[in-house]
Design a protein around this nucleic acid. Structure first.
Length: 517
RNA sequence: GUGGGCGUAGCUCAAUGGCAGAGCACCUGAUUGUGGUUCAGGCGGUUGAGGGUUCGAGCCCCUUCGUCCACCCCA
């Protein structure tokens, strides 16, 4: 019969086996253990959640990448991260626990992104959350914990990058920009640094086509508008959308003006208001871009970078509270001793999950190909618990490792236990199976991985199989052994073999294996 | 979303527009109770799919699907 068409794995989904499996498994075990040793209690949460959980505050970026669907009139989503679930559990069931509460988790997450190297649509996160703790001591504990996990799995040449959301966000919030533009600017911080202001302005045009013309006329003051209408515009700018809309509508009606077009009156008013306000945004945008350009250059060792940041804050009359906090966190971090990884401050750092409210950090590491990949990311999200319905505002922070990425930078030697059975039992004939299975049972009871050969081919073939599967010892039972109540114990590497009494077999095997190391 | 590369045997890949091949894996035998080597043989293909050019297409052209990589973003 002809074979049917194949069904292959979905794009971006991977099958993991062999050495790669063990590398990832080993890394995850070590990390979980390290978190446990710091008092972080494991929690298992569902992979499938209510979509709403991720829409509350995660930001549009993640919403667009969600595996999300309707099931029996319910909107559900595969989790793109685990923090939201952990906080949901806290809000739902753990609010009577004494704070601070230390929790950890491991498991798969899903993001619908274009796959490429070190980037899959399903990957595994191991993470920690510290709930109900604010201040630099908590910040330092989390950063140190993240670093010490990497050291535990044998990664020492990592780089720690620390940033703070309030420096940029605080500045933008004070500017009075439309929220859409603020979000745009936050998203484009990296972009600005890598590709320059031209690229950012180019993509800005997509959401704010008027930017350049508005910027050009903004400086010229009161242009074709008369002074009176400029005053009117200023009044409208101060109003909320609803008030302004109503005001214009009333004005048109009292003057008995009909909007003479096939557009609805409401729509015309919307556009008018939009236009009035856009002009206002342009100069602010210019200031914002200027500030961001300067901020993006602020990266490097804390000792040099922090003073520069203070100078910039003073120049733009910005509150330096975030910088003070960063300084205190760094001081607390020093109490853990020297970090073997290099620490770097980066004020351009801006993480994709938009719920971060203060400290943010990432851990990076060079790969064997000479590239740098991010292994871990985290930060503080003080208002997420309230957003998810927590009874009272509870500060919180955490981080997560990407297990596959960590495994990819470990060398093959680092944690790849032997595969399959160390011992293979080969019963030659049907009559030998009962004895063979009994021996296998004894060995397994002693913790020795044992497989029983069940293919009926000739002995040579079966030995070959056992060898290729990595068996170091083979136990052969056939007619002669059956009669003598022994088994033939063969050491594969040396090809030496000798009969051993069935009663002594398990003991002998154990000794041989432990002698080998 | 944008830009590249690649789709040929189970796997890794060859093949000036001219008979679709090799290595590995698998199976059989030399060896019906002794593996890693060797030797002999065998199985294995709608060359991703569809159309076009040509006497002739795995190769050239168009379409489409898949996949990998890069940008963006992230773990």
């Amino acid at each position: 019969m002809a074979s049917a068409d194949r069904i292959s794995a979905l794009r971006g989904m991977r099958d993991v086996f062999g050495a790669e499996y063990w590398r990832a498994r080993h890394a995850q075990d070590l990390l979980e253990r390290r978190l446990r040793l710091h008092g972080y209690k494991p929690v298992d949460v569902p992979i499938l959640e209510n979509t709403e959980l991720y829409l509350r505050k995660a930001g549009e970026d993640i919403a667009a990448r969600l595996y999300e669907f309707d099931y029996r009139s319910r909107r559900v989503a595969l989790r793109p991260e685990v923090t939201a679930s952990i906080l949901r559990v806290y809000v739902e069931r753990l609010q009577d626990e004494p704070l601070p509460l230390r929790l950890q988790y491991s498991g798969p997450v899903f993001r619908y992104e274009k796959p490429q190297q070190h980037r899959y649509r399903q990957f595994t996160l191991t993470g920690a959350e510290l709930l109900g703790a604010s201040g630099p001591r908590a910040d330092a504990e989390i950063i140190h914990l993240a670093c010490s996990g990497l050291e535990q799995v044998g990664i020492r040449d990592y780089k720690l990058v620390i940033g703070h959301t309030d420096v940029l966000e605080g500045f933008l919030d004070g500017l009075g920009l439309r929220q859409q533009l603020v979000n745009f600017l936050l998203r484009n911080m990296e972009n600005l640094r890598k590709r320059g202001i031209g690229a950012v302005v180019a993509s800005l045009r997509e959401i704010y086509p008027e930017y350049e013309s508005a910027a050009a006329t903004a400086g010229s003051g009161e242009h074709e508008d008369g002074k009176q209408s400029q005053q009117l515009i200023n009044v409208l700018r101060e109003m909320t959308d609803g008030e302004a809309h109503q005001a214009i509508s009333d004005l048109l009606q009292s003057l008995n003006i009909r909007i003479d077009s096939n557009r609805a009156e409401g729509e015309v008013i919307e556009r008018l208001l939009h236009k009035i306000r856009e002009d206002q945004q342009a100069p602010k945008l210019q200031v914002a871009l200027d500030f961001m350009g300067r901020l993006g250059e602020l990266a490097g060792a804390p000792a040099e970078t922090l003073p520069k940041a203070y100078a910039l804050a003073a120049e733009f009359k910005l509150d330096s509270g975030a910088l003070d906090a960063l300084g205190r966190t760094l001081a607390c971090l020093a109490d853990y001793g020297d970090l073997s990884g290099a620490v770097e401050l980066d004020f351009g750092l801006n993480r994709g999950l938009h719920y971060y409210t203060g400290l943010i950090f990432e851990l990076h590491c060079p790969t064997s190909e000479g590239e740098t990949i991010q292994l871990c990311g985290g930060g503080r999200y003080d208002n997420l618990i309230s957003i998810l319905g927590g009874a009272e505002a509870t500060p919180a922070l955490g981080f997560a490792y990407g297990i596959e990425r960590i495994a990819s930078v470990l060398d093959a030697v680092n944690g790849a236990p032997a595969e399959g059975g160390e011992v293979a039992v080969i019963p030659v004939a049907d009559e030998d199976f009962a004895a063979g299975l009994a021996i296998a049972g004894e060995l397994r009871a002693r913790g020795i991985a044992t497989e029983v050969s069940i293919d009926g081919r000739n002995l040579g073939r079966r030995l070959k199989r056992a060898d290729r599967r990595g068996a170091t010892l083979v136990i052969i039972i056939g007619e002669a052994e059956r009669a003598a109540r022994t088994a033939l114990l063969r050491e594969m590497r040396s090809r030496r073999e000798r009969p051993v009494a069935l009663a002594d077999l398990a003991e002998t095997v154990e000794e041989l294996l432990s002698a080998d190391g």
